[in-house]
Simulated scan of single mutants.
Amino acid sequence: MPRTLAQQWLNWGMGLSLAGLVVGCSQIEIPFISSSLNSGNSDEQPALSGNGRFLAFVSNRQGGRRILLYDLQQRRSIELPGLNRPGAIVEHPSLSYTGRYIVYTADDRGRPIVALYDRAIQRSQPLTLSYPGQVRNPNISPDGRYIVFESGSRGQWDIEIIDRGLNIELDKEEGRVEEGERGRVGE
């Protein structure tokens, strides 16, 4: 039975509307946007700063394992120039109180080392180049002075502590009173 021109246009219009609904409801991949926290990539090993503002994690965004830093307060990514070197494999970030210091393991020559990144000067420094054996799972104290990690130098996993000394700039928020700095009542 021949269709009228109006029926053909109506069928065509309904078909386009239905196709638009299907496309509009289907899942599409969203490209990585530097200001987003979650992505379609593998994001793992989260570490939270002591003040709860910053989140560091390992991600395979942009084609390689990198440590990323996210400001939870401002909801944006923070650049870390000098931390993620091409070819280096980074793991297990740990943050000081305000996120100034990031300690992590890096493996760029077949042997993992513990390294420290200072956001104030945008530079990493290796801490365990002279350690025999494997190292893993570093953590930094809230003030940034002490770093603990596991070391396999004696054929078993032991805990090692690095004291960065008294001459470092401690990580503490303005107005925050450290334990031991509080005066006693009546002093």
Rank of each mutant, 00 (worst) to 15 (best):
L69K: 00
P46C: 05
G40A: 08
S130W: 03
E79S: 10
I30K: 15
P86Y: 06
L127W: 05
S94Q: 06
R61C: 12
R136F: 03
N51W: 06
R65P: 10
I161R: 15
C25P: 00
V103P: 04
G110F: 09
R85M: 13
Y146C: 07
G52H: 10
R123M: 13
L127T: 01
I113L: 07
Q122F: 04
G24Y: 10
E29P: 06
I147H: 10
D158Y: 09
S94P: 09
R111P: 04
Y104C: 03
R75W: 02
N38Y: 14
R136Q: 02
Q73P: 01
L69A: 05
R123P: 03
A115T: 03
Y117F: 07
Q62G: 04
N38D: 04
R145S: 01
D43M: 07
I113T: 09
G144C: 01
D163I: 15
L127V: 05
Q27F: 14
G50S: 04
R109S: 13
Q27C: 13
Y131L: 08
S49D: 00
G63A: 15
P142E: 08
N51H: 13
L129K: 12
I89H: 14
R145W: 01
Q74I: 08
I89A: 11
A88C: 09
R53N: 05
I140K: 06
A115F: 03
D71Y: 15
